[in-house]
Design a protein around this nucleic acid. Sequence first.
DNA 1: TGCCAGGAAGCCG
DNA 2: CGGCTTCATGGC
Length: 302
Amino acid sequence: MKTTTDDNCLRIPTPADFNFEECLIFLNRSLQENLHRIEDGRIRKLIRDEEEMILFEITHSHRHLQLEFLNGTPSEAGQRAAGDYVWQWFDLKTDLTPFYELAEQDAILQPIVRRYYGLRILGMPDLFEAMAWAIMGQQINLTFAYTLKKRLVENFGSPFVYEGEDYWAFPSFETIAALSVSDLTSLQFSGRKAEYLIGVAGEMAEGKLAREQFMERNDTEAIEKELVALRGIGPWSANYVMMKCLAIPSAFPLADVGLHNALKVQLGLEQKPTFAEIERYAENWKGWEAYATFYLWRSLYE
DNA sequence: TGCCAGGAAGCCG
DNA sequence: CGGCTTCATGGC
């Protein structure tokens, strides 16, 4: 990543095909989202790096994302953390050319890739957040999943007030690892979700589970196996995490209901497609299943 | 009200 | 491994 800084700003170059507006639409999909704030085409995001709270505003112009730090100039490490976060959040490292070439030859992807051209997978750089969101989203409707996340964040996350508005950083795994099941069931988590979440947080608190340990590896099957071995993480959650946090473009959450609904709409089906049918469609997407899935998700938001 | 929800574990054969 | 049941709770 190449960045330039001056005073209170950080500038990160974006690919020629980058479409900031499309990314904003995806980020704006829930009114209950409390981990970022979007107003007037600007994103405000709070992150915590070590003990430093860093609030910044993101805009896009002249093929750069510009980060303006709002609560003073962070330390050098903090600036680097913010830059890395945004780099991963917008998946800026991936060259989408091969995906777009493949999509042009695919009846399902061609129209949506043309419609949302420049959209990138909006990632979750924080492994714990990605795993927690996967667990919270299992087998419940998205509206309620957002409600649970909002409660989790506002009960156990880190608050920061700026210009009279609240900003939140996602809870640390250390904090969640120290909770008891009843701390979460009182927020309407099911007992199982509570156990899963506390368990995963505990693995991370013990140093057994970290993003870096996965990023150095190439064997995605082994990564999936390792994730699925965790209680509460099945194939869908593992692939969700691989897609959104580990930036593995071939990750594919096959059981995803959003994927099923999007395919149903795109293909004009009477019923949702079967797993076997989806696997057949996906034969054309090899290596880019995560991007195919993400563009299909995007097609649900209008 | 009943079915569904961006699934996973546990059990059985 | 493949199929079936149970879990738990709110949305619509």
